[in-house]
Amino acid sequence: MNTRMAGLSNSRLDTALRSLDVAGTPTAEQRQRAAATLERIVTIVPAAGSDQPGATAPGRRSRRRLLLLSVAAAALTAAVVVLPDGVRGGGAYASWTPVPTVLTAAEVDIVAPACRDRLRGGHLDLERARLVLAERRGEYVVLLYRTDDPDMSGSCLAHNRQGTEDVDDVTFGIGGGSGPARPAPARGFTQGTVSDFRDASITDGAAGVEVAGVTIHAGDLTVQASVSNGRYVAWWPGPAFEREPGRLTGESGPRLIVTYDLTLTDGTVVHDAQPSRPS
């Protein structure tokens, strides 16, 4: 897969990674892991005011962000770059709820055009992508689009007060791989894309047929994911990674602070469940 990262070419990205690596010259094994990471890191299209096809339509407000960190769990052993972005005050997400509600068809029709506008021009084939999950938490909604071959997810977080047709503050992320998607084990799950905007994060993945619920712990927050038809998605008002400002924290980069509990259809709760593989 050809990937772009905030306008950097692969060679410039390699230089940036080397300059941020406090451990010195990487080993052959580290290089191999870093190459795997580059396959799974996907760029966010520049926000409003750019000439990219993902620019927000007139009349919709959008935050300007340089990069969305979008990385699969299997790639967390390799170095990643976190570029600075605009950070909004936490009060913007004051209406957030740990338990989601399902968007109605009418609400999806209102939000979907703005979401697809932002996803357009990325690595997700919108001609074939289908909407698999759509949830609301307070005044913000998430729509998750997917293709199974290649295994790609595109999610957007948008501000839409219930009962209105106003859609703004649209942020998005795209991630995945070049091969076909694999289902999760019956009593397990896979870790898909983790999108960290610093002041908000989104993650999705595959859930097994015997998984009734996915609970995500991110720092002090506990989040009940939306689960349907073998997929889950959730967002929360906070980071997914613990990071030290201005540099990578060791060879593996920022540390993922997300853990998972699974509730199975027979009532069993699996605490600190581990993903079987990237989705």
Rank of each mutant, 00 (worst) to 15 (best):
L13E: 10
A34Y: 10
R40T: 12
A47I: 06
Q52L: 13
T56Y: 06
L69M: 08
A72G: 12
A73D: 13
A73S: 08
T77G: 10
A78Q: 02
A79H: 11
P84C: 04
V87D: 06
G90C: 03
G91F: 12
Y93H: 01
T97G: 08
T101V: 12
A105S: 11
V108G: 05
I110L: 07
C115N: 11
L119N: 01
R120Y: 15
G122I: 08
R128D: 03
L131H: 07
V132H: 10
V132F: 04
L133T: 00
E139Q: 12
R146S: 02
D149E: 15
S153P: 07
S153G: 06
G163N: 08
D166A: 13
F172H: 15
I174S: 04
G176K: 05
R187W: 08
T190C: 04
D196L: 07
A200Y: 09
A200K: 07
S201I: 01
A212Y: 02
H217Y: 09
A225Y: 04
A234N: 00
W235P: 01
W236T: 08
E244P: 10
E244R: 15
G246H: 15
T249N: 15
E251Y: 12
R255P: 08
L256F: 10
T263W: 13
T265G: 03
T268G: 12
Q274I: 13
P275K: 06
R277E: 00
P278M: 02
